[in-house]
Amino acid sequence: MAAHSIPATGDPGLQPERTALSWSRTALALAVNALLSLRAGFVVGEPWLVVVGAVLFAASGAAVAVGTVRRRQLAGDRLMITPPRWALEGVAAATLLASLGGIASIYAGGGA
């Protein structure tokens, strides 16, 4: 997916703001999942859940960085319509990891 930009003309509406806020919400969701994975890993004694939590914290930081860059791109003289492909793939991978970590933390407790 190639980056596509258009000249910023007048009032772009609320779409750029919603787009920037969605990256912040994604980062927050990843951070919450990281905390849950870390807690489950420490309580149950599963080091792989601690690793999943650490990776999710790193992904959360990356989502904050991408959100900051996107906010600047959407507020400039030219609106950068498409985010970088690697950012979208990274968020998809982090979301999958968060989902798998959450499911695994349920089963790691052994029903306790």
Rank of each mutant, 00 (worst) to 15 (best):
I6S: 06
V55H: 05
A112E: 08
T9W: 09
A31Q: 08
A104E: 15
T68D: 13
A31S: 05
G90V: 13
G109H: 07
A104C: 02
A27N: 04
G110D: 01
L14S: 11
G110Y: 02
A34F: 09
G101T: 01
P16M: 14
T19A: 09
S22D: 12
A65W: 04
A62N: 06
V64T: 10
Q73N: 13
I81T: 04
A59I: 06
G41Y: 02
S24Q: 12
L97V: 04
A108V: 05
G76D: 01
P84A: 15
T95C: 05
L36I: 01
R71F: 01
A65L: 11
V50F: 15
L74Q: 04
R39K: 07
E89Y: 02
P12T: 00
T95N: 12
E89I: 09
V51Q: 14
R71N: 13
V51G: 15
P47V: 03
A59V: 10
R71E: 06
M80L: 10
E46R: 15
E17N: 14
A3V: 08
A112F: 08
G109Y: 09
A112W: 06
A34H: 15
A108K: 10
R78V: 15
R39N: 07
V52P: 07
G110F: 12
L36F: 06
P7W: 13
A63F: 01
T82I: 03
R70F: 04
A104I: 08
W48P: 13
A65P: 07
S37V: 13
G109I: 10
G109L: 06
V64F: 03
G61W: 01
T82H: 00
S22E: 09
M1Q: 05
S60M: 05
V52N: 04
T26F: 07
S5F: 13
L35W: 06
G76F: 00
A108G: 10
N33P: 12
E46Q: 14
I81M: 05
L36T: 07
D77P: 10
R39V: 12
A54S: 12
D11W: 07
A75M: 02
F57D: 10
A94N: 00
A31Y: 01
S37W: 12
T19C: 03
G90I: 05
G41A: 03
S24F: 07
P16L: 11
A27Q: 01
R25Q: 08
P83E: 05
Q73S: 08
R85K: 09
I103L: 15
L97Q: 13
P83G: 05
G13D: 10
T68E: 00
A54E: 11
A34Q: 14
V91T: 10
L74G: 14
S24M: 11
S5Y: 09
L14F: 03
G102K: 15
L49Q: 09
A59R: 02
I6D: 14
G41H: 10
S37F: 11
G90S: 15
S24R: 09
T82D: 02
V51F: 13
